[in-house]
């Protein structure tokens, strides 16, 4: 199955965040927990819905990610740009 990561935008400031099992919502893609099986995907789904219901985050999505050498990166360009910031502003790279 496709690897998945849980992402959202923080309610208060809109910042892009990723979910980590141990630390909760983190601003870096590298810190995201990766779901490799359907059970973990379901857990992430529930976690995301609960966080949205608690008004911590908005626009909660499970996104597809893939291996890129030793690293993991989002599959779609949209998510690559969300993870790293606008390509037009290297000074805002995350």
């Amino acid at each position: 199955m496709a690897l998945k990561v849980l992402t959202a935008n923080r309610l208060k400031d809109g910042e892009v965040v990723y979910y980590n099992h141990a630390e909760g919502w983190t601003p870096t893609f590298a810190g995201a927990s990766i779901a490799r099986d359907t059970e973990t995907v379901e857990t992430l789904q529930k976690t995301g819905a609960a966080a949205a219901a608690r008004n911590e985050v908005v626009d909660v999505n499970l996104i597809d990610v893939m291996h890129d050498g030793d690293d993991i990166k989002p599959l779609r360009l949209r998510e690559i740009i969300r993870a790293s910031g606008p390509t037009t502003h290297p000074q805002f790279a995350r």
Binding site: N9, D13, G14, E15, V16, V58, D59, R78, I81, R82, G85, P86
Partner: peptide
């Protein structure tokens, strides 16, 4: 006039 875009509001 408030949207939620990719990186922020």
């Amino acid at each position: 006039g408030v949207y939620l875009q990719l990186h922020a509001y």
